[in-house]
């Protein structure tokens, strides 16, 4: 596979001590990689370093095998879509889109054609003469995407492009971006703090925390097998239970669970709500009392107070919770669980 973008041991520390350390990442041609993490984790620092807006302290950035570290943003084969649309308010949509092409001395007819196609691609045909202030937030962001697409960048950088949009529009834009990516085969690096967004659009996700990479994997893999406690907490919904390793197995009260990592001592056991099973009060498992049953569309969220322990949440199909009611005694078992050393 062709490596389109390679980040090698990138380090950038600010005076405040924040920043990133030792980031290495290879992005293949046509891949959409998401940098995901809480605010201040350094994901934007990495993105801005790729775009040339920040100068790293050490490390290298290669695009199509060539180092771009010494190039200013205007000379890099990257293009960035910013969080705050960033269209130029005094120019029409056409002028906004033409700005970069003019710099590249594109012939007029070709430019007109390309702009028409780009607007078609972002589903805004005929918007050429409008000013950014006449467009809605979603439309403006689409124009911003079109502006970047027109330059045919080697790597398209997206800095939380949809975070200023409302939830419904955000969903639509995700799908559209995915479609655009399929159509154009562009390599994209996407930054977001929204784990759901990351899971839904990425080929691979890089989870970052406090300036370091916690895990790089496909959405599926990251969801099923989070490497660290942080990733487990950050991605999706998760229950955490205190356990202890006893004779090579993780023990929760009288329940025994596998310990493939060979941990010792106190552990945190992570269980996805969909892996929590509820049984009749007489069976095996941890004893608990149902606190609440909430119907959330096609599934239900059941919260259970475990005796002498945490409250945990279970996601069950709606028809399975019909006979459950608050105050009912149940037993709880886990379909799948992952243990982490306790912090």
């Amino acid at each position: 596979m062709d490596i389109q973008l390679s980040i090698q041991r990138l380090t950038k520390r600010y005076k405040t001590g924040e920043g990133v350390s030792d980031i290495s990442l290879d992005v293949r041609k046509g891949e959409l990689v998401t940098l995901l993490g809480p605010s201040g984790c350094g994901k934007t620092t990495v993105l801005r370093s790729i775009g040339g807006f920040l100068e790293p302290d050490s490390g290298d950035i290669l695009i199509e095998g060539k180092s771009v570290l010494k190039l200013p943003p205007e000379k890099r084969p990257t293009s960035m879509v910013f969080q705050s649309y960033n269209l130029w308010p005094h120019m029409t949509v056409f002028e906004n889109l033409a700005f970069g092409l003019k710099i590249r001395k594109t012939p007029k007819a070709e430019m007109r054609q390309a702009i028409e196609e780009a607007l078609q691609l972002v589903r805004l045909p005929g918007a050429e003469k409008k000013y950014p202030s006449e467009l809605s937030g979603g439309q403006q962001q689409r124009v911003a995407v079109a502006r970047s697409l027109l330059l045919k960048p080697a790597v398209l950088l997206l800095d939380e492009p949809f975070s200023a949009l409302d939830a419904k529009l955000r969903h639509e834009m995700r799908e559209e971006l995915r479609e655009i990516q399929a159509n154009t085969g562009l390599t994209m690096v996407f930054v977001t703090h929204d784990q759901e967004e990351a899971l839904s659009i990425s080929d691979r996700i890089v989870v970052m925390n406090q300036g370091r990479m916690e895990q790089i994997a496909s959405p599926q893999h990251i969801y099923d097998e989070p490497n660290t406690l942080f990733v487990a907490q950050f991605i999706g919904k998760m229950n955490f239970l205190k356990g202890v390793v006893d004779a090579g197995q993780v023990r929760l009260d009288d329940m025994l669970l596998p310990n493939p990592k060979g941990l010792a001592g106190n552990v945190s056991l992570a269980v996805r709500p969909e892996d929590v099973m509820l049984h009749e009060a007489e069976g095996q498992g941890l004893a608990g009392t149902i606190k609440q049953v909430m119907i959330l569309g096609h599934y239900a969220e059941v919260s259970v107070d475990l005796q002498g322990r945490e409250t945990i949440r279970a996601f069950r199909p709606r028809d399975q919770v019909k006979h459950l009611h608050p105050g009912q005694e149940v037993k709880v078992t886990f379909g799948k669980s992952i243990a982490y050393p306790e912090q």
Binding site: G51, G52, F53, P72, P73, E74, K75, T78, S79, M80, F82, S84, N86, W88, P89, H90, F99, G100, I103, R104, A144, R147, S148, L151
Partner: peptide, 27 residues
């Protein structure tokens, strides 16, 4: 004039003079 407006111009390849005459001055 937000920094981001200037950054996005740099990003599409505009040099200082172009940014000045096409963006900063009109804005």
């Amino acid at each position: 004039v937000p920094n981001s407006v200037i950054e996005s111009a740099k990003d599409v390849g505009a040099g200082f003079l172009r940014i000045f005459f096409k963006l900063i001055l009109p804005l």
